[in-house]
Design a protein around this nucleic acid. Structure first.
Lengths: 253, 253
DNA sequence: CGATAAATTGAAACAGCTCAACTGTAGTGG
DNA sequence: CCACTACAGTTGAGCTGTTTCAATTTATCG
């Protein structure tokens, strides 16, 4: 409700400027995946404005009534829940091609979503998407698959938080980011961490100090390089083994 | 008083004989929620057999291809994920009126579901449900709400596992069970734990010993009574405060 | 350039785990 | 019905991975 309305009127003017899903580099990953050209056009017609957000700007907050889903066009987001005592838990980091807001279909938003850097999303009015479901069954089926995958993703995080040690959690985190960047055509073994150490720690159920120590230790073991927020995975095989738990977890020392 | 006896006494005795959603005591909570009588009938027609499972019997396993959703008619289930190293993480406990299998819509099952006691489910062939979605928009809308709520539920577990202490986790667990039984018309403050201490510990990211100690300590504080698996909440207000985190968490001592 | 925030590192504390012994409970067969 | 076994749960003692607290160092930004 209380969103700054000043900036959003101007149309995007730079290289990111695209008008349709068909032209978007993410359409193989995003909602239009697997649709015929004609169907993509129909989807295109219902998509609202492309909304720009700057770093730390909020896309939606807890309690806001649900109206739109959002597809990340570029940039990164974090979503987090806040409990009664005011403590937050980051529930996910979202990047280009990923969908935000599925937890809100029940009526109101149950978490906050914040841009980690200057980002852009496609606003997808859910009521119109529902109309389209009736006409484009492929779209509905794919939407269900996406929601189902989100449930599975969260179950994997529960597995991580419920019974992995710090070292394994962090390895899972790195390997997961690596795979997602690879899917998007970026280098698998060299990427920028878009989130702070604090955000990583919060997401993994660890303190910022633990993340810092983990990073130092992994570096000392020769498994990776770190320069500020740029990470280079030097031994991805080892990291994958750690993540899978097939390799033993050594103490924090 | 043996456990099987007290279990049979709780649900209405004729429940096993029901043939339709309209007659099912769970239809206010389950998939048919909010449907017109005529629409419930249509849903009824696509529902497959009612499948009985005995204790420890598996409803589905990881890797099985997806065909049906399942609605719990009576009894209880647990779902769990297994990682590469063979360790399990219980991702939820399901009771009457709740839906199982939504994580599998993406194609194959990503977790195992096992009956905690003799139970019965309604088999819902998803392909036929999809057909019905096109004809009964209310059903589709409600299905989306259910999936969305599942996502939110899991985010709440992430919050629990990510930044709550043992005492608070356990309080959340008890208060949550209490609320769900209350919704189903059972006593809010007196119920059977259908799962072992080990299952509780696994779900909450704690050891069985911790659960045992927590139970003893809560008992000593006068917050609850325990007799084997029967729990009586003596101070639900205090427990809710602990769960919400508005009350301080005392050490395990 | 200085101020402020983010990240690193060390030392000490502690929550929950591991290991181990024990108790109760349910199930089985004589 | 009891003896025996197996398993679930409880309790204690010591250990340890991670947090907490504190002090620096390093980046970021006006």
């Amino acid at each position: 409700m209380s969103q700054p309305l000043s900036r959003q009127a101007e149309p995007p003017l730079n290289i990111h400027a695209l008008k349709s899903c068909a032209q978007c580099s993410m359409h193989q990953l995003c909602l239009p995946m697997g649709l015929e050209d004609a169907e993509i056009d129909r989807l295109d017609k219902i998509i609202g404005r492309r909304r720009r957000l700057e770093r730390d700007e909020r896309l939606y907050s807890v309690g806001e009534s649900f109206r739109n889903l959002y597809a990340v066009r570029f940039g990164h987001f974090k979503t987090y829940q806040v409990n009664a005592a005011g403590e937050a838990q980051i529930t996910g980091f979202q990047m280009a091609g990923e969908l935000l807001g599925m937890d809100a279909i029940s009526g109101t938003h149950h978490c906050d979503a914040v841009a980690l850097e200057d980002s852009e999303v496609c606003e997808i009015p859910f009521a119109r998407l529902e109309d389209l479901f009736g006409e484009v069954p492929t779209l509905l089926r794919h939407f269900h698959r996406i929601m189902s995958q989100e449930i599975t993703r969260e179950q994997n995080v529960m597995l991580l938080l419920g019974n992995m040690r710090a070292e394994q959690r962090f390895a899972v985190f790195l390997v997961n980011l690596s795979a997602r960047y690879a899917t998007r055509g970026y280098a698998a073994n060299r990427f920028q961490l878009r989130m702070s150490r604090e955000d990583i720690g919060n997401y993994l159920g660890l303190t910022i100090e633990s993340i810092s120590r983990l990073l130092s230790r992994f570096k000392k073991q020769g498994w990776l390089e770190v320069d500020k927020r740029e990470v280079t995975l030097l031994d991805p095989v080892k990291l994958k083994a750690l993540a899978a738990g097939t390799d033993v977890c050594s103490p924090m020392a």
